[in-house]
Design a protein around this nucleic acid. Structure first.
Lengths: 135, 135
DNA sequence: TCTGGAATTAGAATAATTCTAAATTCCTTA
DNA sequence: TAAGGAATTTAGAATTATTCTAATTCCAGA
């Protein structure tokens, strides 16, 4: 049994590695189509379906994070630890930031929702530095 | 200048009202297509495009909330006040709950993200009561 | 080297949403 | 009350995001 990746079966193939490399190489939260464009430069024969398969694989393996808000497509984040997101209501910019949400807050959330909590995540909506009026 | 709706121009037409009524009539978070199906019963001639237009209108007017996670489509929530969401990682169920997030937390989030905060929202991922092992 | 399972490929299929252009509704004012 | 015009609705086409399918390729182990 050869497990190259942490928790699950499956191999970190060339194409999966290329997709990972693209995501790790960007500070932005790229969409599948942006990733496809860039991965193609590394591996010209890679197909769209493989990009989606790889994204699913990497997400399951915990090597990237999928985020979806705003309009349209899912975006992928190289940051895999717990963190939060700020979304600009003006230009759609999405940035990571960290808030030390306490275990207490997580317990409260679990109690009030009646869910067994796995993770919590905070989203701030507002204006990014560029869109904020008068600098 | 005739403003029927709170903050913006535009009229609360029959079709918009039907869409609103469908959303208000459900405890679930419906998708556009579910809303279309139900609105059709109230107003058989309503078209898909009008449902989307109405959803946009009602969202802008602050009369419904749009939420999007999980797989696929946007969902619409009759709850318009600040609140949080719990998403089941097993079955996809989405429920509202309330956490009294403090003004202090909002300020901290704004400071760390460098955004001007408009709203904050917490998402809990985990298992809903039905999917939790051993009742 | 052969073989089977896993992964990849191209392109078709599906799903969600937006766009377009024509028709309709509903005011507003003459 | 009729005409004009803006806002809205409609049907269907177009677009975008994602998944599926079937054939092919890759690779590890017997």
């Amino acid at each position: 049994m050869t497990k190259s990746t942490a928790e699950q079966g499956g191999t970190l193939t060339r194409q999966r590695e290329a997709v990972l490399q693209v995501i790790r190489g960007s500070e932005e939260h790229l969409t599948a189509s942006e990733i496809f464009e860039q991965a193609r430069r590394l591996l010209p024969s890679i197909s769209y379906a493989t990009v989606y398969n790889s994204l699913k694989f990497l997400t399951n393996a915990g090597m990237v994070h999928e985020v979806k808000f705003g309009n349209g497509a899912s975006r992928y984040d190289r940051e895999t630890g717990r963190h939060d997101h700020a979304l600009c209501t003006e230009c759609g910019k999405l940035v990571d930031f960290d808030l030390d949400l306490t275990a207490e807050l997580m317990r409260t959330a679990a109690r009030r929702s009646h869910f067994k909590a796995e993770s919590i995540h905070l989203t701030l909506r507002g204006l990014c530095p560029d869109c904020r009026p008068a600098g």
